[in-house]
Write a protein that binds this DNA or RNA. Structure first.
Length: 508
RNA sequence: GCCCUCAUCGUCUAGCCAGGUUAGGACACCAGCCUUUCAAGCUGGCGACACGGGUUCGAAUCCCGUUGAGGGUACCA
């Protein structure tokens, strides 16, 4: 399918109106309109990513619009929050952010225009009488009811009641006939006439409703593609009605499935993390999150999974968008993050690692040694938080040894003396590099007539307070002579302070 | 209730539109290799066409139905 641009729609009142992309001219313009009511949710992020991919693949513009018409729930601080989340993901809007609230006058004017043209009418009905009819309709199994139950007031009545100061809402006169349109991810979708109804576009307090505002702003922004969540699918007839009534081209629609949590539950903080910010704070790389989210509901068609931004852009097509809802898989994101952690340029990793180094007190340490340490540990870290902690022993004065992990070393009475010999060796070796270090350790092992492992394992424990980690020779070389000696000495005295006890009681 | 949408391994997906595959890949899980440990990496294993009808020589693929799931049904967005 071609990804078209705005389309002119034609319809008759009797036949189903078929809304198709008929005009492929005009620039591609997409938009992302979050509400500033909270952090950027992964569902929103996926929508933004899909729009981002589409605009770059087709060469168009990305408009950021803040849907802040719900004053109660909107918080200006969240706008900045969302912007920074998008920037972190590497999504740069070409235009905006525009505040929807800035254009309420235009929205009202549009409502007035529709009123003047007879495409909308005054609604004086009370919530109670509308509710009553709604219940009735519900019982009958009907969805729409308003249009049938309440004929629009006459011009005289309107004049009289408005003059009397009665408040009213403005209701859009939904065109008759079924509504059929082409959705980029779902194909042809039809809503029959009897589920379509007249709806409010201006509240009795004069504020525009969501439907009016989006359509006005999409027209104003000359939006060509409306790519959004499936929760908006059933709004399409309303929006198409409005686009047409306002004399505008109808954009091409595409509705992305919702993202589910593990176990098909709703995705929430409880199930792990739900906002971009949370993932960032957990030490997920933006490249990894972008890549993972892009693949949640889209695939390039071949077996590629770890893809650069450019590769994704080049491979992107709307026809490969998946129509079924996906469950978020934290394990796979974790794996993806590990892929980026070991694959990205070291400088890139270091840059994103900075805030996490800060947290563990390594804000201003020697860059070179830090780089060596990070490079050595990156293949075994799943997130930046973890990676930062791996760097700690390289700079700390002393380490805390877990008695549980050290049990087996404590049981070796010769060990402290052996470590002393190793310390000597490290002290006197000319070049403290990979080769020099290995020579010392292996040489000493031969001298002592023990396997190299007898020295290697306690040394790893001494230097990192951990029983597992990178190749020891690399570890020692990266850590450098000073820190290595310091930890070795500390560990030797730790062992001497905790001599092997005579058969400890079984209960501890 | 009514409307819309969706349905392949536990999860993400390829294959479907243009019926014929040992139904492919990835995560997770298991085993082996590698190895000074742990990862990584490599090799292998496990594991799916929701169900029922039709059409057809032949159906994951086309049609109908059922079931299940998600969304909507506002003077919320």
């Amino acid at each position: 399918m071609r990804s078209g641009t705005p389309c002119r729609c034609s319809f008759s009142d009797h036949l189903p109106r078929s809304i198709m992309a008929t005009s492929l001219t005009g620039p591609v313009r997409v938009r992302f309109p979050p509400s500033p009511t909270g952090f950027l949710h992964v569902g929103g992020a996926r929508t933004a990513i899909t729009n981002d991919l589409l605009r770059h693949n087709l060469g168009g513009s990305f408009i950021l619009r803040i849907e802040d018409t719900d004053r109660q729930r909107s918080d200006p601080a969240m706008t900045a929050q969302i912007q920074s989340a998008l920037a972190w993901l590497g999504i740069e809007p070409d235009e905006g952010p525009f505040l929807q609230s800035a254009r309420v006058n235009e929205h009202r004017a549009a409502a007035q225009q529709l009123l003047d043209e007879g495409k909308a009418y005054h609604c004086f009905r009370t919530a109670e009488e509308i509710d009553e009819k709604r219940q009735e309709a519900h019982k009958r199994g009907a969805t729409s009811f308003y249009r049938g139950a309440f004929p629009p007031p006459s011009a005289d009545e309107v004049e009289r009641r408005v003059a009397a100061g009665e408040s009213y809402a403005v209701r859009f006169r939904m065109p008759l006939g079924a509504m059929t349109f082409q959705d980029l991810v779902r194909g042809e979708v039809t809503f029959s006439e009897d589920v379509l109804d007249d709806f409010i576009i201006l509240r009795s307090d004069g504020s525009p409703t969501y439907h009016l505002s989006v359509v006005c702003d999409d027209i104003h922004g000359r939006v060509s593609h409306v790519i959004r969540g499936e929760d908006h699918l059933s709004n399409v007839p309303k929006h198409i009605g409005l686009f047409q009534a306002l004399g505008a081209d109808v954009p091409t629609f595409g509705h992305l499935p919702m993202i589910m949590g593990p176990g098909r539950k709703r995705l929430s903080k409880r199930t792990g993390a739900a906002s971009v910010e949370e993932f960032r704070d957990q030490g997920i790389l933006p490249q990894a999150l972008y890549n993972y989210l892009a693949l949640l509901g889209w695939s390039p068609g071949d077996d590629r999974e770890v893809m650069s931004r450019q590769e994704m852009i080049d491979a992107f097509t709307v026809e490969r968008l998946v129509p079924s809802a996906a469950a978020f898989d934290y394990d796979k994101l974790r794996w993806m993050n590990a892929q980026y952690l070991s694959g990205e340029p070291l400088a890139e990793i270091l840059q994103h690692l900075a805030p996490f180094l800060d947290e563990v007190g390594l804000a201003d340490v020697d860059r070179e040694r830090l780089g060596a340490a990070v490079d050595l540990h990156r293949t075994r870290a799943y997130n930046l938080k973890e990676l930062a902690t791996y760097a700690v022993p390289y700079f700390s004065e002393s380490l805390e040894y877990d008695p549980d992990l050290c049990k087996k070393f404590v049981k070796q009475p010769d060990l402290p003396a052996q470590l002393d010999r190793l310390i000597e060796g490290f002290r006197s070796v000319d070049t403290f590099d990979l080769e020099g270090v290995e020579t010392v350790i292996r040489g000493l092992a031969t001298e002592l007539d023990v396997k190299a492992g007898v020295l290697i394992h306690p040394t790893r424990m001494a230097l990192t307070a951990s029983k597992a980690g990178p190749s020891l020779f690399h570890l020692v070389a990266a850590m450098g002579r000073d820190a290595s000696l310091r930890h070795l000495e500390n560990f030797a005295s730790y062992l001497r302070d905790n001599p092997p006890s005579e058969e400890e009681p079984a209960t501890a």
